[in-house]
Lab assay of single mutants.
Amino acid sequence: HEITLHINGRRVKLRFRDEKAAEILKEAAKKGLDEEELKKLAEELWR
């Protein structure tokens, strides 16, 4: 699955395995994680 989040006016595509991962990524984006941090988090969730 993929999700596209808008971060600092940019579109960031993240891959994720399940809905739980999608929710975690959305929450992290709301908390203000930047693009690099979100990509790292997405990679961690993928494993």
Score class of each variant (00 low, 15 high):
A21Q: 07
I3F: 07
A29L: 09
K39N: 07
F16S: 07
H6V: 15
L25Q: 00
L38Y: 02
E37D: 13
K26M: 14
D34W: 06
K30W: 07
F16Q: 01
G9K: 03
L41R: 02
A29M: 08
R17D: 02
L14R: 00
I24G: 03
F16Y: 15
A21K: 02
D18I: 03
L33V: 10
K13S: 07
A22L: 15
L38M: 12
I24A: 09
E19F: 12
E23R: 11
I7Q: 02
W46G: 02
L41Y: 04
E37K: 11
H6Y: 15
L45G: 01
E35G: 08
E2G: 04
G9F: 00
D18M: 03
K13P: 04
K39D: 04
R15Q: 08
D34M: 10
E2S: 12
V12A: 01
L25H: 01
H1P: 05
A22E: 08
E43S: 08
E43L: 10
L45Q: 02
E23N: 13
A28F: 07
E2V: 14
A28P: 00
K39I: 14
R11D: 15
K31T: 10
A22P: 05
R11N: 14
L25D: 00
E44Y: 13
E36G: 11
E36F: 13
I3P: 00
R15D: 01
I7Y: 03
E27D: 13
L25C: 04
L41C: 06
N8F: 05
H1Y: 14
E43V: 07
G9W: 00
R47D: 14
D18F: 06
T4K: 03
K40I: 12
K40E: 13
L33G: 08
K20F: 09
K26L: 13
A22Y: 10
L45Y: 03
K40M: 12
G32P: 03
A22D: 02
L38F: 03
R47Q: 14
R15P: 07
W46L: 04
G32T: 04
G32I: 04
L41W: 03
L14M: 04
K31S: 13
R17H: 09
R15L: 07
H1C: 10
K31E: 12
G9P: 00
L14Y: 04
A28N: 06
A21Y: 05
E23H: 12
L33D: 05
F16L: 07
L41P: 00
V12Q: 01
R17F: 09
E35H: 08
R11H: 15
A42V: 04
K30V: 11
R47A: 14
E36W: 12
E37W: 07
E36S: 11
L14A: 01
L14H: 01
L14W: 02
I7G: 01
L38V: 09
F16M: 05
R15E: 03
L5Y: 03
T4S: 07
L5W: 01
E35D: 07
K40G: 09
D18R: 02
E37N: 11
E44T: 09
E27W: 08
I3L: 15
R17E: 03
R17M: 14
N8D: 07
F16H: 08
K30C: 04
I7K: 02
K26E: 07
A42M: 05
A21E: 04
E19K: 12
L33C: 05
E27C: 09
F16C: 14
E36H: 14
R11T: 15
A22N: 04
A21V: 05
E35Y: 11
L38H: 00
A29W: 14
D18K: 02
V12I: 11
I3A: 02
H6S: 12
V12W: 02
A42H: 02
A21P: 01
E43G: 07
I24D: 04
L25E: 00
N8Y: 05
A21F: 05
A29K: 03
A22M: 13
I7E: 01
I7A: 05
L33W: 14
D18W: 04
A21D: 15
F16W: 05
L25S: 00
L38R: 00
K20G: 09
G32W: 05
W46Q: 02
N8Q: 08
E36V: 13
K39T: 10
R10S: 09
K31L: 11
G9L: 02
N8I: 02
I3V: 07
E27A: 13
K20R: 13
R17N: 07
T4Q: 04
W46A: 02
R15N: 05
E27V: 08
K40F: 12
E43T: 07
W46D: 03
K13R: 12
E19P: 13
L38P: 00
K40S: 12
H6W: 15
R17V: 08
E35K: 05
L5Q: 01
F16A: 15
K13A: 07
G9M: 02
F16P: 02
E35W: 10
R11F: 15
E37V: 08
A29V: 12
E43N: 08
E2T: 14
E2P: 03
V12T: 03
L14N: 00
R17C: 12
A21R: 02
L38N: 00
